[in-house]
Design a protein around this nucleic acid. Structure first.
Lengths: 218, 218, 218, 218
DNA sequence: TATGAATGAGCGTTCATTCAT
DNA sequence: AATGAATGAACGCTCATTCAT
């Protein structure tokens, strides 16, 4: 039995916590290694570079999420019954909730990673997401599409990102949002609540009838 | 007649463009002054510090937005007729659109500023928003509340932030999203389209019936 | 009648005060012009450079000191009676006291200037002292020599600098020394006291019999 | 066997040399690291900051000085015979001489450090001296007091600082003073000579009868 | 496997000075 | 006589990374 966790694990845990609080570029290797109580060079030794550590954090989060969704979706589809939009969203929320159990900051850092992947100069991370994980979630997205209001492909593309924005923003900042709501943090209880509250909102958003014309011609 | 714009303005414009593309901490003063074609020390001369420049950028965006919304809401309310949720959202979108005319990156940097304000260590910026601009938007939020589904205060708080997440995420990354949609950027046309597309989604999200119980007890 | 002093004078006064508190290199042009409530460029306009300002401060202090000593010494010598060492030192102290009336920091900045002149890279200032003021004080030094214990030239050279060290150190730091003595500053009263206290000490030091051999051969 | 000294030592030695010649604020980290032939960042790595380097230099000088004086005084006192003022001063001079062997600039930089500690804005350094070293020198000062002329506490306070001024000024600038004396520098021989020359002067100064009244009432 | 030492590049900031008005 | 704007140079410091052990 080990007295202290594996060095690489300690680093990842420290990194997740700091990434969640401060963001990636704002977190220094010195901070990470200080919190992890390991040598400064250990990050480069174990993960090659800071970006390598970010990727490792990414994997540790995306893998169980994809696993969960794939498995849950297959189980549900095997019943033969039609799957409702709310069921699909609850499936997603449960997947996120399972990720949140990795540690208390994992959801926030996860969402920050997704944010980061949309930044112009993060081609590598973006490519990593697209090639590694996009295919595994495709079936889930097709199900969503079927339950959403009828709309064209590009409309669905944007709706997905409106939804993604809600999820990312809320979970990235949920610690701060709880503070602003003037409630003290009580762990996963609130995360469940927040995730649950999103379901009807996202559901309504995806099912809202798309309008053809728009308001403003300048 | 001046051959080139005022130094301070050139700096702000360069900063907005770079902030929008890269974020604040990722943008260096050397990048800003190189793009603006001014001396490195000019930023400190005109804005005291990098943070001072961020604040200046912030003001230049928030002021016209608040002006627009206050004015438009007062005009609309003076008619005496009830204001629908879609009207309120269109009002917001038009306000954002007016900000987008400042320059092609202003909406993105604006949204990044809002994101930033929710970060733990940005108390100063957050306080700036809360004291300077929150009061000016209160009346608008009350109108939103009246048109939303009946719900408790904290439910409304979260709904607002779900909605805010959609707006912030989409507009922060709209350049990248357009790229992913495989369409080339054609200026404000797309922004209008995106803003318009949000209205029914946000409207449906705010009007969705809140559920009392939630799914998961661990 | 002028409502505010001449710009150049205001600058000198501000500079003296700041130089006395912080030293020369530690005092910035911005601090000086802020205290003087003049434009930043005014220093360069009136004094060509920061060094030019230092020289101006120097002149404003050395001129009256030399005047005082020359005049007092000539008056005293014209009586035909022999001049005692204590009289000479009191003459010096009164000269310093007269300088201290220029403003409350003038003695401290004066002493700091003398310190500075002994620094390796301050050849210009050192040359300025030597060519401008050394000749005017020569007669006074000769009188000191006559009243000191008999000793060789180089011994006298060092004794003078031991004495100079006492004066410079004490007056450079007299504000701080008063603080350490746990007494509050009450203006020129203390300076008089301190100057007076130095006389018997310096007198005894100059009159002490020089020893030929010294203690340590390694 | 190492071909070149330890990096930290090289830095300290370069720093001492430059500090002695130019002062602290006038010496840049780039100068230090250039002379030491080490990387610019090495100073921060080994000493955390420039101030940290100053503190390290300080410790390297004060420690052996205090050790020397404490040990020499205890030895001398254990003989049971009364200690004369000249003996005490010679003890001090030998202590300074032992410090001067650290390297050719160590006494000058030491004296500059003492000067610095009396500056208004150097509270930290001053506190460092007071808490770390003042207690270790207290016994020595009490012996000085016993051998000095009878006088009140505050008179003794000032006399000590007159004496300190002589020592600090002379040793801070002894290189320059030798130059002005038109003699070339020949290493520790001159330092011994200068230190020795101070003894009768300081001794006479401390033993001079204090006067009660003073000369000038304005 | 792990680490203390070291490094090149770059950071935000400040400096005394200059220049056009 | 005076000033707001601007500048080149340099500042102390921190960064992620590398390397010898």
């Amino acid at each position: 039995m080990k007295r202290r966790a594996d060095t690489a694990t300690r680093i990842i845990q420290a990194a997740e916590s700091l990434f969640a609080e401060q963001g990636f570029n704002e977190t220094t290797m010195r901070q990470i290694t200080a919190v992890a109580e390991v040598n400064l060079a250990a990050v480069n030794y174990h993960f090659r570079s800071k970006q390598g550590l970010v990727n490792a954090v990414c994997e540790r989060l995306m893998e169980p999420l994809c696993d969960y969704i794939e498995k849950a979706l297959d189980e549900r589809l095997s019943s033969g019954l039609a799957v409702s939009l709310d069921e699909l969203l609850e499936m997603l929320m449960r997947a996120l909730l399972s990720v949140s159990h990795i540690n208390s900051h994992s959801l926030a850092v996860f969402m920050r990673l997704l944010e980061l992947a949309y930044m112009k100069n993060q081609e590598e991370l973006r490519e990593f997401f697209i090639t590694q994980y996009a295919p595994r979630l495709e079936k889930y997205l097709q199900c969503l599409r079927l339950d959403a209001a009828p709309m064209e492909d590009n409309e669905f593309f944007w709706r997905l990102h409106f939804m993604l924005g809600s999820v990312i923003f809320t979970l990235s900042n949920y610690h701060m949002l709880l503070t602003l709501e003037k409630k003290s943090f009580q762990g996963n209880v609130e995360i469940e609540q927040i995730l649950h509250r999103m379901i009807p909102v996202l559901s309504a958003g995806l099912q809202a009838r798309a309008e053809k014309a728009y308001f403003c011609r300048l």
